[in-house]
Design a protein around this nucleic acid. Structure first.
Lengths: 204, 204
DNA sequence: AGCATAAACGGACTTTACCCCGTTTAGTAT
DNA sequence: ATACTAAACGGGGTAAAGTCCGTTTATGCT
């Protein structure tokens, strides 16, 4: 009479063929990305190379940007691993302030390494690029801010702003040429800038 | 024998018909925007309604995002007027710190009022949305930072980061629903957050 | 095993951004 | 006025994103 569903929120697990195709498409996309760059990656091309229908590609990822978001998510998982369980100061064990600085440095490196994917993951019609909703980055920063005892301040808003200060330069303002020619110096300048910013913000 | 050009850099003034069509297209675009919203504004539709060829539209604006960038530029001119020549604390006359705070507040208001255009002006393949190169916003923040005597710090990088902290939330992270339902409160929260952030950063 | 059903698949179709190039015209020099 | 030229115009053509819907298949139940 009653149906033993897996509660209301879980819309039944992903079907096996769907999983297989999703992984296959991601792998194929990585291949094309490595060979030809992000702007040459078309939905038709991906479908053909993966030997699947175009409808399948859209069903899996919804939109072109969705593919890059999925790729980014994937790589971000390894990064999060380090943040959550890795050695300090990035992982737990160091002081919140040191972790915050280390996090920024690590994230800058990650974003520079993934700049092509990260840019392509931006949508314009959608708010946030990767992550389900509030980006992990923002949550982590919010948490560390909470552990540092700042005077009365709206930590939620501050976390959003600091996340933007971290991601914005690489996602919005730095041109591609700034990154290809002297990526290493740029990375160091931004990482250092982050450290200065955080130390100023968190000064007692 | 020699031709009295207007020096090398100036590629000859814009032709009269070009100016006329550009203004006409911008006006038409504003009309369509007000009636139907940004995502319904297509290049073909604009060309037809303006009674011009599609080629002309692309020649003027280069890309779809270019139209929104032009509209934003246009509105930003009035805003800059206030910043450069208006009354303090936004205009000159107040202390740099007060101007910085006032600027952030004003810009948040401007961006919320122009959120649809500003989002549509984002490109993805291009670095910065509006303004010719480094956004005016960034230059202005950079200048005010220079007038505040902070300890040794890379002001160029800091300016980029603060610009991102200001624009990022509205361009990247806040979903449309956050803005339509309680735009006024959101505006106040972000503006207050900016003030807190700046006061922290600029504390002696 | 056989069945029911929701999900996944595929590929034709539509829409839209953007390109190209032959034609027209504003601006200038004679 | 006339001729010349660089720029602007127009609209058909191409490619790629995204939609639709009829067909196929995995999965859970009897």
């Amino acid at each position: 009479m009653d149906r033993p569903l897996l509660s209301v929120g879980a819309p039944r697990a992903e079907r096996a063929d769907a999983v297989r195709n999703r992984l296959h498409l991601l792998a194929t996309a990585r291949g094309m990305l490595a060979e030809q760059g992000a702007d040459k990656l078309t939905m038709d091309g991906l479908a053909e190379r993966a030997d699947l229908g175009k409808g399948t590609v859209f069903r899996r990822f919804g939109t072109r940007a969705g593919i890059f978001q999925a790729l980014l998510d994937d790589d971000e998982r390894a990064f999060q691993e380090q943040v959550l369980y890795g050695p300090p100061p990035l992982g737990p064990g160091a002081s919140p302030l040191d972790r915050l600085i280390a996090y920024g440095r690590a994230r800058v490196g990650f974003l520079i390494g993934h700049r092509e994917i990260a840019r392509a993951a931006l949508d314009g019609s959608q708010p946030v690029p990767a992550g389900s909703q509030t980006p992990i980055s923002q949550m982590h920063i919010r948490m560390l801010l909470g552990q540092i005892h700042l005077g009365a301040a709206n930590l939620d808003v501050l976390a959003v702003q600091l996340t933007a200060a971290l991601d914005g330069p690489l996602l919005l303002y730095l041109s591609a040429s700034d990154l290809t020619e002297a990526a290493a110096q740029t990375e160091e300048r931004i990482a250092q800038g982050w450290q200065d910013l955080i130390q100023r913000v968190c000064r007692p």
